[in-house]
Design a protein around this nucleic acid. Sequence first.
DNA 1: TCAAAAGTGTTGAGCTTACACCCATGC
DNA 2: GCATGGGTGTAAGCTCAACACTTTTGA
Lengths: 241, 241
Amino acid sequence: MTITNAPAPRASGATSSVAPGTRVAVSTVIFTLRRSAGQERASVALPLVRRQSDPHEGQWALPGGWLDIVEDLDAAASRTLAETTGLAPSYLEQLYAFGAVDRSPTRVVSIVYWALIRPDEMADTSDENVRWFDADDLPNLAFDHNQIVAYALWRLRNKVGYSQIAHGLLADEFTLAELREVYESILRRKLDPANFRRQVEGTDTLLPTDRFRKGSHRPARLYRFNQDVELADRGPLGVRP
Amino acid sequence: MTITNAPAPRASGATSSVAPGTRVAVSTVIFTLRRSAGQERASVALPLVRRQSDPHEGQWALPGGWLDIVEDLDAAASRTLAETTGLAPSYLEQLYAFGAVDRSPTRVVSIVYWALIRPDEMADTSDENVRWFDADDLPNLAFDHNQIVAYALWRLRNKVGYSQIAHGLLADEFTLAELREVYESILRRKLDPANFRRQVEGTDTLLPTDRFRKGSHRPARLYRFNQDVELADRGPLGVRP
DNA sequence: TCAAAAGTGTTGAGCTTACACCCATGC
DNA sequence: GCATGGGTGTAAGCTCAACACTTTTGA
């Protein structure tokens, strides 16, 4: 059954050979919600950085950088996010490792993360080389970054259906209508307020408060997220991002 | 809003700096089903390789190797699998990139895949340094490989519930009882044959054939997997593994 | 008083679960 | 015949979508 030309099996971590020339980068797809003027719903937006040097110079690309030799992967993603938005992520999760040979002129393996930040904390950078784009209306990006963003968007829209990540886009206290708007913006469709309320109240992820949001109509009760419930995917190692 | 000490944002792929000393390895968690003597159900098993050299010498580890500079990540995982089992995977998917600074004496980022192979194709290696273990009864492995296997097992058990990966453990033609046994072995619990039949027939993933499996009792109809249906996660790039 | 959003009630469709029951074959 | 697994029927319980309805506020 063993194929003929196979060398002897190797266990990973062996130091007998090296892989010269392969470099590791970390990039992050940072999502937030943004209400454009005239738009009925908020839409998913992300920051891009204009490339200053040779491969794809001038094109927009995901924020990222080289992995430091004494830096965990998560830390590198957080650093990327801080450098771009000046903020800590309210959610951070590894997306995928991209490593096709031809994705860059030189061999680069990119560990890509995706993150959420709250719209109210969104930095307004005065940097000309950082710009926020609607996720569904992107230009041609450098490298394979269009594919990467598409995959991250798919993960976001998929994961919102079975996890509590929507809370990563809201402040500490929020009304059910605000929570529903987050879902509607990500999923790009209306949700029934009555059924949404029951579904979300049926779980133990929300704690009602005694406060109410006053507006133009009947005040809405404010809720906060139940910290006891698993907020997010803590990854295979079970540590908080 | 921008934090003070942050350097200017960088776009990923910039060639201005490098990350010397970080090496990229690819490892694969290869699952199959194995019926141990005296066991009522089959159990999940995987091959491990005994380390021949310095870090953790003598301990068991996941099969893997260094990423070649002209080799895609998927290809490296397939190579790993071929070197260990002599077979092509019936399912192959990227699991996670592990890159904690202290997971190895030298800096190693491991791109880990997980794969399925059919029990009937399982190679009986005469290699003393390759052994198959029950996934739920592992020794202490090298590096963080125990955690990696635990995560891969979680993915397997989770994914079997909403995808068709169980077919990756069966031959071309199979009875519904055989398919059900795959689910029962992975999930480690009995399933109602009647309800299982209806659930799986309700989807369009199975094609009934005219052939029957004769045994000691009433012959059971043979089915084959509907190739038109998305067999598996094709990854963010939409290419078949 | 009226508009509009907050919040409740009700109903039917579809799915899951449990389990009774019939069918077809080897012995 | 009869034991055994293959395969069908059916009813209770649950979730979910649709939508009518009541409540509470600002203007």
